Computed example of a mutant assay.
Amino acid sequence: MSAHNQQIGARGEHVAAGWLRNHGMRVLATNWRCRAGEIDIVAQDGSTLVVVEVKTRTSTRFGSPAEAVAGVKLRRLRRLAAAFLAQCPSYFPAVRIDVIAVLLPPGGGALVRHLRSVG
């Protein structure tokens, strides 16, 4: 991944974390890693643990950012959620996977779309 794409991704994750906080969620971790991979954001929504995949794009030329999260990626996120829970000292009666799609058009503000319970 190019440095430019990494910067876009980091900006999108920053925007997404702010979005979650502004909507009453508590961000527990960002870029949480284990041997199986990485979770962009781990948050708490009431008593629910939320694993958040952030997808950021500068245009919709190749589709919306959220379209990039399906099948294999969702299965990996489920495994990562289990790995996080295994290491987490807190109890969460529910877990969900969300996607936050961030569109960063040139010269404009960020557009955020939050998709809840995608997998």
Results as ranks from 00 to 15, higher is better:
44 Q>K: 08
30 T>K: 13
109 G>R: 14
64 S>Q: 14
115 L>I: 07
117 S>V: 06
103 L>I: 01
36 A>T: 07
32 W>A: 08
118 V>L: 05
103 L>M: 05
69 V>R: 00
19 W>Q: 07
43 A>K: 05
60 T>A: 04
104 L>C: 08
26 R>F: 09
53 E>C: 04
24 G>R: 01
31 N>P: 05
66 A>T: 10
98 D>L: 09
10 A>T: 11
19 W>H: 14
91 Y>H: 15
3 A>K: 04
90 S>Q: 14
76 R>G: 04
91 Y>E: 13
55 K>A: 05
101 A>T: 08
53 E>P: 03
44 Q>F: 07
47 S>W: 12
97 I>F: 03
97 I>A: 02
108 G>L: 06
49 L>A: 10
51 V>E: 01
39 I>V: 06
118 V>Q: 01
9 G>H: 07
36 A>V: 03
71 G>L: 10
8 I>P: 01
112 V>K: 00
73 K>V: 15
96 R>F: 08
1 M>Q: 13
46 G>I: 14
44 Q>I: 05
72 V>E: 15
91 Y>A: 14
75 R>D: 13
3 A>S: 01
41 I>W: 02
68 A>F: 04
10 A>W: 03
47 S>G: 06
73 K>R: 14
29 A>G: 03
109 G>E: 14
54 V>E: 05
60 T>Y: 04
52 V>H: 05
91 Y>S: 13
117 S>N: 12
11 R>P: 01
11 R>H: 12
12 G>L: 00
43 A>G: 10
19 W>I: 03
92 F>M: 01
41 I>S: 02
116 R>L: 09
73 K>A: 14
107 G>I: 01
39 I>K: 02
20 L>D: 05
92 F>R: 00
95 V>D: 08
111 L>W: 06
39 I>A: 03
66 A>D: 11
33 R>C: 10
98 D>G: 07
1 M>Y: 13
38 E>D: 05
1 M>K: 13
7 Q>D: 14
77 L>M: 04
95 V>Y: 12
47 S>A: 15
83 A>L: 07
5 N>P: 09
104 L>M: 08
114 H>P: 05
64 S>P: 12
27 V>T: 09
85 L>E: 04
54 V>F: 07
100 I>A: 02
